[in-house]
Simulated scan of single mutants.
Amino acid sequence: MSIQIANVSKKFGSFQALKLLNLSIAEGEFVAILGPSGCGKTTLLRMLAGFEQPTTGEIQMNHTTVAKPGFSLPPEKRRIGMVFQAFALWPHLNVTEHVRFPIRHHKETPASIKSREQDRITEVLQMVGLSQHALRMPHELSGGQKQRVALARAIASEPSLLLMDEPLSSLDAMLRMDMRREIQSIHRQTGTAVVYVTHDQGEALAMADRIVVMKDGQIEQIGTPQDIYLRPQTEFVAKFVSKANLVRGRWHNDMFAPISSDGTVQWHGSQVADYFRATGLYPVRPDQFQLSPPHQSGIQGEVVNVQFQGKEFHYDIRSEDGQWEISSPLHFQLHDKVSLNLLNEPVQNYNNIEVFA
């Protein structure tokens, strides 16, 4: 199913939840809607599901209008599946009965699915790894198994669009990793378009074909996970997704001089977005900083906090221009003096070059 969202906005009374969104989703594409609480991502999902009408604009699915002001095609006529943050399982139905329900009762279930109901149930349970638990009741299942049931129920009727609203947020860290793999596997097997709402950057980066980053009801940036992470276009995306440190300084063409280095250190920045050039900033991810002993070429700083994370250490480094978050495999002690540079970037002195603001 392809989706076109054109000039869509949504107001609740005087509150503007969404502000003129434009977005296209290709058939079979996995799109993550990423943003903090209150940014409008769930409102957008609810309009795709048919639970809300837009205040302005239009939503089309397969080139057919399904929502516009004063009109919204009901959810049961959209051939969609939904997975919620809460498992939303019925306590009186076993696993098989949960999967059977949409096959029998969804109006848009294809006849080819209805005619081979038991085969489809068996196929779906195998897909989510629940074949051995077909007769169990919800109270007999773990959290991860319950979420697999919710996922199996959502895909049982072979929907053209799968909507997922923070489905892993109630699971512990290890289960979330397992379920990411399950969702990716199901997406590959079914070819269903997926719109996945999350505030977790790791989930979006790991699973999506494209990420839509939202803030205050607007789209900040759309791109592949690599584009969003490596080439943020705004300060919000740099901080929210890349966890970037925003270093102040001066730009001269593609060269940047950090303000705390007195212009003696230059960083290459040909891939840095125009926004940062205009505002005199350079986004540096925690893993882009290189730590070295003090008094070498670079920003001089002091270790003010250390967290051991197995393969690396997470540092807070205080410098003349602020405090930076840095990840490094090198071990320094609290209050050690260090120098900061860009990892794998040629760093030289350019004393003979005039640097402009």
Results as ranks from 00 to 15, higher is better:
residue 174 M to D: 12
residue 191 G to Q: 09
residue 155 I to N: 01
residue 151 L to S: 03
residue 164 M to P: 01
residue 192 T to M: 13
residue 191 G to I: 14
residue 159 P to G: 06
residue 166 E to G: 01
residue 191 G to P: 05
residue 171 L to I: 11
residue 193 A to R: 08
residue 158 E to D: 08
residue 187 H to M: 10
residue 158 E to C: 05
residue 156 A to R: 04
residue 179 M to C: 04
residue 171 L to W: 05
residue 190 T to F: 11
residue 170 S to V: 14
residue 182 E to Q: 09
residue 158 E to G: 00
residue 186 I to F: 04
residue 166 E to C: 04
residue 165 D to G: 03
residue 165 D to Q: 02
residue 150 A to V: 09
residue 176 R to E: 00
residue 173 A to G: 03
residue 146 K to V: 13
residue 184 Q to I: 11
residue 157 S to D: 05
residue 150 A to S: 13
residue 165 D to R: 01
residue 185 S to F: 06
residue 179 M to N: 07
residue 174 M to E: 14
residue 157 S to P: 02
residue 159 P to M: 14
residue 184 Q to Y: 01
residue 160 S to R: 13
residue 179 M to P: 02
residue 149 V to D: 06
residue 176 R to Y: 00
residue 153 R to M: 09
residue 187 H to T: 13
residue 182 E to I: 13
residue 177 M to P: 00
residue 183 I to W: 05
residue 176 R to A: 01
residue 156 A to Y: 04
residue 145 Q to V: 12
residue 167 P to N: 08
residue 166 E to H: 01
residue 178 D to F: 04
residue 144 G to S: 09
residue 152 A to W: 07
residue 171 L to G: 03
residue 152 A to S: 06
residue 188 R to V: 03
residue 151 L to T: 06
residue 147 Q to A: 08
residue 174 M to K: 14
residue 168 L to E: 03
residue 163 L to T: 01
residue 175 L to H: 01
residue 144 G to C: 12
residue 152 A to T: 10
residue 183 I to A: 09
residue 176 R to D: 01
residue 147 Q to H: 08
residue 183 I to T: 05
residue 168 L to N: 03
residue 186 I to W: 06
residue 173 A to N: 05
residue 182 E to C: 02
residue 171 L to H: 04
residue 166 E to S: 00
residue 186 I to P: 00
residue 156 A to M: 07
residue 150 A to I: 11
residue 187 H to V: 15
residue 174 M to V: 14
residue 146 K to T: 13
residue 158 E to Y: 09
residue 164 M to N: 05
residue 175 L to I: 15
residue 173 A to T: 08
residue 185 S to T: 14
residue 191 G to M: 14
residue 181 R to S: 12
residue 186 I to Q: 03
residue 178 D to M: 11
residue 158 E to K: 13
residue 190 T to M: 15
residue 177 M to F: 03
residue 168 L to Y: 04
residue 161 L to M: 08
residue 162 L to D: 02
residue 168 L to R: 04
residue 165 D to K: 00
residue 162 L to Y: 05
residue 154 A to H: 08
residue 178 D to R: 13
residue 163 L to H: 01
residue 176 R to N: 00
residue 188 R to D: 02
residue 149 V to M: 08
residue 182 E to K: 01
residue 147 Q to C: 11
residue 159 P to E: 10
residue 159 P to K: 11
residue 147 Q to L: 09
residue 157 S to K: 09
residue 148 R to Q: 08
residue 157 S to F: 07
residue 193 A to T: 15
residue 188 R to E: 12
residue 161 L to I: 15
